Simulated assay, not measured.
Amino acid sequence: MRKKVLLITAVVLLIALIIFFGFVPTFVDKSRNTVVTKNVQVPPDAWYDSLPFVADLHCDELLWKRNLLTKHDYGHVDLPRLQKANIAFQVFTIVSKTPRNQNYDSNSDKTDNITLLSIAQLRPVQTWFNLKTRALAQCRQLYRYAEKSSGEFRVIESSRQLKQLISDRKTNRKLVGGMLGLEGAHCLNNDSKNLDDFYKAGVRYIGLAHFFDNEWAGSAHGMEKYGLTDAGRQLVKKMDSLHIIIDLAHASPKAIADVFAGTSGPLLVSHTGVQGVCNNPRNLSDQQLAELAKRDALVGIGLWETAVCGTDAAATAKSVRYAVDKIGLDKVAIGSDFDGAIEAPFDITGFPLLVSALKKEGFDDTAIEKILGSNTRDFFLRNLPGN
């Protein structure tokens, strides 16, 4: 009888392990990264397909156990879909920690969803409990994709490499460039010296905080929402010295004000909305927009409901219109937050739908080309390290 019980227990445990490691990661990915309209029908648009540089400022694809080089019928981004959508440049952001019961109002740093996800994905053991190691592993993964892409994907670290990408796409429209960013500086493990390791790993912009307050800065979604700490002020100075761009997405209003007061270096907001259209603490106020305009910053308008108070391209276009009217045409771009555990109106192949939505907001072809990519191209040409 005892042997039978042990056998049954072993079989049940084996089945549970198969389900946990074999099915849970994909199930979580499919259930978190959804679209309002699946297999969206995109009318042919020769003008859009002719655009030399279409770009997106923010995507979290590297968090998921999904091969970037293979087309998938779930999630938002992979190389075949980027190519189909005529995307020249995609920023891949590293998510290293998110709180349990994540919300937009108040989150503690005491819990972490990504540990269990990393285990379920069978990531290397050293990434399970060390945020720096976890984040650097995602960085290395992007380079491995580039190595295996048969020359169709490359990682961009400098303005020189970006110029080369622009030149090479004139004869190879399937070529896609990717760049690395960090979503939250908590993965520096409370040591600014680790910034050097992330720079060497290719990271070129860093959001100071994500969904919780950390040792560097307060989050718009944190418990205390404080500004820059003393360590955070030193970190900002070091980021400036390394030509690492500061991303103000998710930062608390106090932290944003402290950055404005403490640096003249380049700034962007990689994925956001505007309070003038969609009023919530996550989005930018008119006062913040005005200061960003003075800094020649770049603002990426998002593709999810909390950012734009809508679930289609028209909602994003409305927020783009508002931002352009406030800060100028040259300072607004698209920062989708694709694969960031959001419901998007469509996956990356639906990007052309933004054209008609922006036209309805009164933008002409020249303006739309800027919003969909030229502004992003020019910002990084100005602000990435030269070599």
Rank of each mutant, 00 (worst) to 15 (best):
E61D: 07
L208S: 13
S50A: 11
E61L: 13
L175Y: 00
Y226R: 11
Y74S: 12
K84V: 07
E152A: 12
T34P: 04
I334D: 10
A46D: 05
F351W: 09
V77I: 13
D109S: 15
T229P: 04
Q275Y: 05
H243L: 05
D60W: 08
V91M: 13
W128S: 01
G177K: 00
L62V: 08
P281D: 07
L63G: 01
N113E: 13
L79Q: 07
S374T: 14
A344T: 02
D112W: 11
F379D: 04
I334R: 14
L303C: 08
V155S: 13
S264E: 05
A251F: 00
V12H: 06
F212C: 10
V11L: 10
P352N: 12
P385R: 13
G362V: 14
A307N: 09
V274R: 08
T171P: 01
R282T: 01
F351H: 11
I348M: 11
Q138P: 03
S158C: 15
K238V: 08
P345W: 05
A317T: 00
C309K: 06
R100E: 10
P25R: 05
A315S: 13
A220V: 09
K110D: 09
L122D: 03
A255G: 07
D45V: 08
G22F: 02
F260W: 00
Y48C: 01
A231K: 15
K38A: 15
K170N: 06
